[in-house]
Every structure is written in structure tokens, then in C-alpha cells.
């Protein structure tokens, strides 16, 4: 009746495309404004390049990095590390979480442990990781693995134990065996929690990665930033920050958030308030 706006998904046809375009434009406009304001501010206030770089310097740094291939190497290394650690962690955490969530006793035993270790997720592992594995690949993968593993396992466990028993009973009385129970009830039922866990865990892992790379390696985005600091090369630092921001925006907003929304809202498992 009133002036409420329909969600875009319910509007059909070319109008829908047009609305998406408008939404995207509205989203980008403030960022473009910021991009325009930046050189103006740097010029007007005569900011020293040792404090904050101009746009040209940053573009120059990007061009240099692209030309000698170092920029791509840093980005690829960082992404590779996150991907490896995350995949390993999810692959280990989900089956474990599902298996544990089925029995209330196992769940009562493991929940406090997983909670404790998810509290430590990420950065707090860096000192011991570097002590155990030395500076480099092993330590960083270990930090990322830890950040994702405990949070995903904890959330999976929560998700499985939150499945109403009547759903399990219903499936059993319809003839579901152990495998079918797992694939048809437990996994889908826990999926929203799993996705939420991955999203939170990746958030910690990404930050942990940047921190670990500052301390523990000689390649990667974090390293790139930290080395640039030694030479007061703010243009490289700002370039790195922008790249970090854009990568995370893509991972979180275009990959994880829609996934989370899709599972949670589509199934109506969580009431949106």
C-alpha cells in the first residue's frame, strides 16, 4: 500500500538490468569522488610525498610493479597462501564439525575447546608459528589454517546441533541411511552456519596473513608494504593498501556475502528483522 520498494529480484525484465546498473553507479560514484579529491588535496595542501603520495606516484608504482612482475608476484603469493590455508582448513573442519555435532556429548566436550582456539584465531599464532616452522611458507599457512579451522569447525558444530531433532527423525522415518542423513539433512542444515564461519574465519585469516607477511617472509602484499616503509615509499604503501582493499571487497562482498545471504535468506533459516 505505502511507498515500500520491492526487492530487485522480484522485478522482471530490462527494468531489472537498469536497476542493477543504477545501483552499481550509485555505489561507485562516492569512490570516484574520493579519487578525484585526492590529487586536489595533495596539491592544495602541498603534502610531502613522504607523508602521502600523489595519484601519479601511485600509478607510477603500479606501472613499475607490473613491468618487473614483482607486483603480480606479491598478489599471487598472498592469494595463493590464503587459498591453500583456507581450503585445507575447511576440508578438515567441516567433516569434523559435522561428526562432532551429531552427538551431544562430543559437542559438549569440543565446544569449549573450539571456542577457546577460535578466540586465538589468526595473529596470536604468529610468534609460535614462526618459532616452530621458521620464517616462511609453513608458518604462514599454519596461521591461516588456524584462523579458519577453529571458527569453521565451531560454526559447523553449532549448525549441526541447531538442526531440530524432528528433521532428523523425519528423514529417518522416510528411510534415510547414515550417508543420506549426512548429505540430505546434516550438511545442508549446517550450511548457513558453515558459510558464516568461513566468512568470519577468512576475515581473520586475511588480516593475519598481512600481519604475518610483514614479519615472516620476503614476498607477499604485507611484505611489500612493510619494506616500502623502511624507505619511506608511501606510494608503494598506498598502492598495496588499495590492492588489499579491492581484493577483500571482491572476496567478501562478491563471493562470501552473497553466498551467506543465499543460504540463510532463501531457506528462511534465520528470521531477518
Amino acid at each position: 500500500m505505502s511507498d515500500h520498494v520491492e526487492p530487485i529480484a522480484f522485478i522482471a525484465g530490462p527494468k531489472r538490468v537498469w536497476l542493477y546498473v543504477r545501483q552499481a553507479a550509485a555505489f561507485i560514484a562516492p569512490l570516484v569522488l574520493l579519487l578525484l579529491a585526492w590529487p586536489a588535496i595533495v596539491t592544495i595542501f602541498d603534502v610531502s610525498p613522504r607523508v602521502f603520495p600523489g595519484v601519479q606516484a601511485v600509478l607510477g608504482a603500479a606501472a613499475d610493479g607490473l613491468r618487473d612482475g614483482t607486483l603480480l608476484a606479491h598478489v599471487a603469493t598472498s592469494l595463493g597462501r590464503v587459498a591453500l590455508g583456507t581450503v585445507l582448513a575447511v576440508a578438515a573442519a567441516v567433516p569434523l564439525g559435522v561428526a562432532m555435532g551429531v552427538n551431544s556429548g562430543v559437542s559438549a566436550l569440543l565446544t569449549p575447546l573450539f571456542r577457546f582456539f577460535s578466540v586465538l584465531a589468526g595473529i596470536a599464532w604468529i610468534p609460535i608459528a614462526t618459532l616452530w616452522f621458521g620464517y616462511g611458507f609453513g608458518a604462514i599457512t599454519f596461521v591461516i589454517f588456524n584462523a579458519v579451522f577453529f571458527i569453521v569447525a565451531y560454526n559447523t558444530l553449532l549448525g549441526v546441533s541447531a538442526i531440530p531433532p524432528r528433521l532428523r527423525h523425519a528423514a529417518a522415518s522416510l528411510g534415510a541411511g547414515r550417508v543420506a542423513m549426512l548429505t540430505e539433512v546434516l550438511l545442508p542444515g549446517a550450511l548457513p552456519n558453515i558459510v558464516t564461519g568461513v566468512r568470519t574465519g577468512l576475515g581473520f585469516a586475511w588480516r593475519g596473513l598481512i600481519a604475518a607477511e610483514m614479519i615472516a617472509t620476503d614476498v607477499g602484499l604485507g611484505y611489500m608494504l612493510f619494506v616500502a616503509r623502511d624507505f619511506y615509499r608511501t606510494e608503494v604503501i598506498v598502492l598495496g593498501m588499495i590492492i588489499i582493499g579491492i581484493i577483500w571487497l571482491f572476496i567478501d562482498r562478491l563471493l562470501l556475502a552473497p553466498l551467506e545471504r543465499a543460504t540463510i535468506e532463501r531457506w528462511g533459516l534465520v528470521q531477518r528483522t
Binding site: 588480516r207 610483514m214 608494504l225 616503509r229 598506498v238 582493499g245
Partner: peptide, 11 residues
């Protein structure tokens, strides 16, 4: 938010 706290440290 996406830039993240830690990436600000060098600057």
C-alpha cells in the same frame, strides 16, 4: 573496512 587495520600500520 576492506583495507583492514593492519595494512595501515606501515603508513
Amino acid at each position: 573496512q576492506a583495507i583492514g587495520d593492519i595494512a595501515w600500520l606501515p603508513l
